[in-house]
Amino acid sequence: MIYLLASILCSVSVSVLLKIARKQKIDIEQAVAVNYIVAVALTMWVLQPDLHQPQQFLPTWWIFAALGVLLPGVFIIMGRAVEQVGIVKSDAAQRLSLFLPILASFLIFGETLTEGRLIGIVLAFAALLCLLWKADTAKKGGTLTQQAGLLLGVWAGYGVIDILFKQLAKSGTAFSGNLLVAFCLAAVLMFGWLFAKGSKWRPESIIGGAVLGGLNFLNILTYIRAHQTLSENPSIVFAGMNMGVIVLGTLIGAGFFKEKISSINAAGISMALVAVVCLFYWETLRSWVS
């Protein structure tokens, strides 16, 4: 539970940093590239992966290869989606990617669908729709097909990344080495992208990227630890993470950035809290009632 809470806090902190970064005119792509350099350094320092036996990574090479491509790729897709479609719809696509890892929990990871989890998952999806219910009629640009493609990319990208992190958690002690290789590959691809487009570096972007790297590393580390701690219940991690992020993000948005919360949003917050209770404490509640 503590790992899941820490991951939620770090994830929301990343979003807050990105929101502030835009006001400070920090180049997000440059910050993301630097973030992976910091993540590599922290992985080496904190996790100290064993690199003396590279053959240990062969069985899971496809995981870090996929993550190395998807991690920076989804950042770029998300940025373009925000530009062309808007923040509201892009954020909705990211949060509704919860459907893919939840489905994988039962179809791939063999989790048992209990009564409490079914109720919690249904409430979780209902809460997401309520929390993401906002009017957004402004035309941002791009054709309808391009906008749909970007939103589909955000939805599928974040969903697949969640599933891959669960697979990475199953690799045991080798996960730190897999994570290191994924970060290295992501850094190479991101810097290659920036150099290819002739990006001019800014000191603010480097500083912002260093902070982003620390938060992003802690977010991923605690998320994987949560999967390892709750290895028999991946749906709890998937749903709990998304619910926690959206609720905390909504509260911070209203409290610090003066974003409006409608009555439907407020109902979503309440529903999300009930969903988390069902996911974590259903059996305890049933024992109290009986």
Rank of each mutant, 00 (worst) to 15 (best):
I2Q: 11
L4F: 08
L4N: 07
L4D: 04
L5Y: 12
S7T: 07
S7L: 09
V16F: 01
K19E: 07
I20Q: 11
A21G: 13
R22A: 12
K23V: 08
K25Q: 10
I28C: 09
V32E: 06
V34T: 10
N35H: 05
I37R: 07
V38S: 13
V40P: 13
L47I: 07
Q53T: 15
L58I: 15
P59C: 09
T60N: 14
W61V: 15
F64V: 11
A65Y: 08
A65K: 04
L67C: 14
G68D: 08
G68R: 09
V69G: 05
L70Y: 10
L70G: 12
L71Y: 15
G73S: 03
F75P: 04
F75K: 07
I77V: 14
M78W: 11
V82K: 15
V82R: 14
G86D: 08
S90T: 15
S90W: 11
A92G: 12
A93I: 11
Q94A: 15
Q94G: 13
Q94Y: 14
F99Y: 15
F99W: 12
P101L: 03
P101A: 03
I102N: 13
L103S: 04
S105W: 06
L107N: 02
F109L: 06
T112C: 13
T114D: 09
E115Y: 03
I121V: 14
F125T: 01
A126E: 12
L129N: 11
L129Q: 05
L132A: 12
T137H: 08
K139W: 05
K139G: 13
K139C: 05
K139R: 08
T143M: 03
L144M: 11
A148Y: 12
L152E: 01
V154Y: 10
W155R: 14
W155A: 09
G157F: 10
G157S: 13
I163S: 11
F165Q: 10
S171Y: 02
S176F: 15
S176L: 06
L179T: 14
C184P: 01
C184M: 12
L185K: 13
L185F: 06
A186K: 08
A187Y: 07
W193R: 13
F195D: 02
A196S: 02
G198L: 04
K200L: 04
S205A: 11
G209F: 10
V211E: 08
L212H: 05
L212Y: 02
L218D: 04
L221V: 15
L221F: 08
T222D: 09
Y223R: 12
R225D: 02
R225S: 13
R225W: 02
H227L: 09
Q228V: 08
S231H: 09
P234V: 01
P234Q: 08
I236G: 14
G240M: 02
M241C: 04
I246N: 11
V247M: 11
G249V: 07
T250A: 11
L251I: 12
G255A: 00
G255T: 04
G255K: 01
E259S: 06
E259Y: 11
K260Q: 04
S262W: 03
S262D: 03
S263H: 00
N265G: 01
A266T: 01
A266M: 00
A267E: 06
M271K: 01
A272Y: 01
V274W: 00
V274T: 00
A275Y: 00
V277F: 00
C278V: 00
F280W: 00
F280K: 04
Y281W: 03
S287K: 04
